[in-house]
Nucleic acid binder design. Structure first.
Length: 466
RNA sequence: GGCGCGGUAGCCAAGUGGUAAGGCCAAGGUCUGCAAAACCUUUAUUCGUCGGUUCGAUUCCGACCCGCGCCUCCA
């Protein structure tokens, strides 16, 4: 089975392959850098990362663009409030965003592009739209005329045919011909940062940056365009209107949208006190990979209820994965491989792949892995798991972790060295041999206080970091 | 009101026209100097409600109830 994605445009699952050669050209909406990103943002960015990783695991190459929105109303307002220039202000939050991404093991897109580096491209596009009569000017701003684009509404499945241009809806502060028309270019208000351009002084509207940068780096038709569901309307609808008016070609073949994240069953909001940035969560002592696991474990098209119980559950689940890997690496197994295990490993690999191929059904994929782990552990306990079965099992875990990326622990700072741990273990083993269990337990307790867990097995002592 | 997503065990969650994956939690057991890890057993006669289609529906259809999102730049 090939990989399938649910396409918002067609409202059904479709088999995916890139239009040209073996490279997936995709564009995903990035952050607006006016503050630290919150875990809801990272739900979407984690989805995008899973998408990247699974596409690559499926044998495709990637050419992926993500924008950094570094000019908008909130940025201008916040920068002014902090008495910083736009550039100073956005640099802080861009850096913070990238640090957070690194912690969550989110890969960098091939192109990470700030809007303000593409002002000329945007102005040029707006001029071309104007030449094709898709725009009009009003009070120094340039608007896109929605009535000039026949397909408006096809992504959000809204029917705008009843909206007659010029019908007066509440448009008080804007002088627009139609309430749905949107700004391509905004005239500067008093004291605002602006660019002097052939279409007048001002700054770009939000939607135009995505169209322009996507087309510039990836061509006129993208294979995939992705983002959060809240962007379907109006953002992505507007992108389609602009892009297709410019090129006359479909803007994107597949539109993928990640559902919302709730916190403790409620919408995240500052007033409810359930608003968390990634930093807030990590400050409570959770590991980044735990957050990643939780965000990845619920399929992206289902809303995700983020809870601290859920984080604890994720922590334990990761432990189980790590323990299994440790056992594969440290136990002694009988010579050779067994046919039953070989078959079981191949089956698990297929089940995992089928799950991911089914529109990134991570819950199903995880189920396949955990079922396998139980069966493999069981086989080990009964001596039915051979040394020759180890590589296949490790490969399966590697496949899993190429996508989920949660098994390797985040290194803690100032931890005890491996050598020191080994020395203490030797000390304890000697004490055990002398049946001085009090002394042996003492060593184990001391190591535990330093974050080292010892486990006695038939093959000897094995240890891991907490 | 329009458009969209969802309601499955204590929590998270997969899934199919034929009788409910997986993870966490809980209880009991096996193993163990102890501990840990691991395994085994138990935990939804039931899948929001009410109708309909069917030999049979959680899965299809209809109505309704509830939650969430978008509908003037929020992932």
């Amino acid at each position: 089975m090939a990989v399938q994605f649910y396409n918002t445009l067609s409202q059904q699952a479709e088999e995916f392959s890139p239009a040209r050669d073996n490279t997936v050209r995709m564009y995903t909406c990035g952050p607006t850098v006016y503050d630290f990103a919150h875990i809801g943002n990272f739900r979407t960015f984690t989805f995008v990362d899973l998408l990247r990783k699974w596409l690559r695991a499926s044998g495709f190459h990637l050419d992926h663009v993500m924008n950094i929105t570094d000019v908008d109303d909130k940025i201008i307002r916040n920068a002014a409030a902090h008495r910083k220039t736009l550039e100073e202000y956005t640099a802080i939050y861009t850096r913070a965003f990238l640090e957070d991404c690194d912690k969550l093991r989110l890969e960098r897109p091939e192109h990470l592009v700030p809007a303000t580096s593409h002002i000329n491209d945007m102005v040029e596009a707006i001029e071309r739209l104007g030449a094709a009569d898709h725009t009009y000017k009003s009070d120094g701003s340039v608007y896109f005329r929605i009535s000039s684009f026949a397909g408006y509404g096809k992504l959000s499945h809204n029917d705008f045919s009843g909206n007659i241009a010029g019908a007066r809806v509440d448009v008080d502060s804007y002088d627009k011909a139609d309430a749905r028309d949107f700004a391509l270019w905004k005239a500067p208000k008093e004291g605002e940062r602006f660019w002097d351009t052939p279409i007048g002084p001002g700054r770009p509207g939000w939607h135009i940056e995505c169209s322009v940068m996507a087309i510039k780096y990836l061509g006129e038709t993208l294979d995939i365009h992705a983002g959060g569901v809240d962007l379907i309307f109006p953002h992505h609808e507007n992108e389609i209107a602009q892009s297709e008016s410019l090129t006359g070609k479909p803007f994107a073949r597949f539109w993928l949208h990640a559902e919302f994240l709730l916190v403790e069953g409620q919408k995240m909001s500052k007033s409810l006190g359930n608003y968390f940035t990634l930093r807030d969560v990590l400050d409570r002592g959770y590991k980044p990979e735990t957050v990643r696991y939780l965000l990845a474990s619920v399929p992206y098209r289902k809303s995700l209820n983020f809870t601290f119980d859920g984080l604890k559950s994720a922590e334990t689940a990761i432990e189980r994965l790590r323990n299994f890997k440790l056992r594969l690496e440290s136990d002694r197994f009988p010579e050779g491989a067994t046919e039953a295990v070989t078959r079981r490993t191949a089956q698990a690999c297929r089940a995992f792949t089928d799950g991911m191929n089914a529109d990134l059904n991570t819950a199903e994929a995880l189920g396949a892995i955990f079922e396998y782990i139980r069966d493999a552990n069981s086989a080990m306990d009964s001596g039915g798991f051979g040394a020759g079965d180890v590589p296949g099992a490790l490969e399966l875990l590697a496949l899993f972790d190429r996508v989920f990326a949660v098994i390797e622990p985040t290194a803690a700072t100032g931890q005890v060295s491996d050598e020191e741990v080994e020395a203490r273990i030797a000390e304890r083993t000697a004490a055990k041999k002398a049946r001085d269990f009090a002394r042996a337990d003492d060593v184990r307790k001391q190591l535990l206080d330093q974050g080292i867990i010892l486990e006695d097995t038939k093959a000897g002592v094995r240890w891991k970091r907490k």
